[in-house]
Amino acid sequence: MTGPSTSAAHEDVTTGVAGGDGNASATRITPGNALRPEDIALEVRTGAIRPTDDAAEYALRLGDDALILAQRLGHWISRAPELEEDVALGNIALDQLGHARSFLTYAGGAWDKSEDNLAYVRREHEFRSAHLVEQPNGDFAVTIARQFLISFYQYELYRHLMGSTDATVAAIAAKAVKEVDYHRDHSAQWVLRLGQGTDESRRRMIHGLRLMWPYVNELFDEDPLTLRLVASGITVAPAIIREEFDRLTGQVLADADLEVPDVPAAPGGGRRGEHSEHLGYILAEMQVLAREHPGANW
């Protein structure tokens, strides 16, 4: 995993800031021709693709989840328990950032906005991230608990989205699913290690799962948008993903001799722009420099 995602990031530099490969297609990916946000941006600019308003709203949700998670995970780089984890968590953050850039670029196509415009100029209530990804990193077990939940959710979601009737959503999901499969493996291995390692690690893992579990339900909420998207075949019914999510996370927890925490679910609200108290701080830090220099190129 380290190879593909970092080398993809490296290639961006050599192609220059404007980027975009006229021969690449946002809806067609082939081996060695990975889908890049620049390619999507080019197709959006030339009018080759344009999301419907519903698809754009949906891409915004997916992009915001990935962006806020990347922002959270990026904090671990230079602070992880082992150098190997600096690399692993950095890699996962990079993958998520890549997915965010693709989804946001596509979403922005509906409103003539760039990925940076959406990331750096929107206000808190305009973000659509779920509360789970906004939760603080906590200790390593808390971060792993969050990773465990989000990666199993994203994997099932992206796996189904590969068959989306929206070709761009399907193409982004096809690239993302391979990367999220690794995130799933990474988090599951740590749930096993921490759950069965020492008394202290087990106590911390249980605590981490209890802290994060209240935010699971929101990921599978149905609202008028998801109902319309399911009807048009752009996405899959959340209940279908939930079933697989419960089954697979349940297996890992059983292997780790852990239980699904018995904690009340939080109401969520991120999809409507009602966020946890944490998001304001995340955005303040993320946007500070860009907002100091409105309209600047970097």
């Binding site: 922002q71 750096y120 220099h293 970097w298």
Partner: peptide, 11 residues
């Protein structure tokens, strides 16, 4: 990393 002024620069 957290304050990089564009998503590409952040990546």
């Amino acid at each position: 990393i957290s304050r990089a002024p564009s998503l590409k620069r952040k990546a």
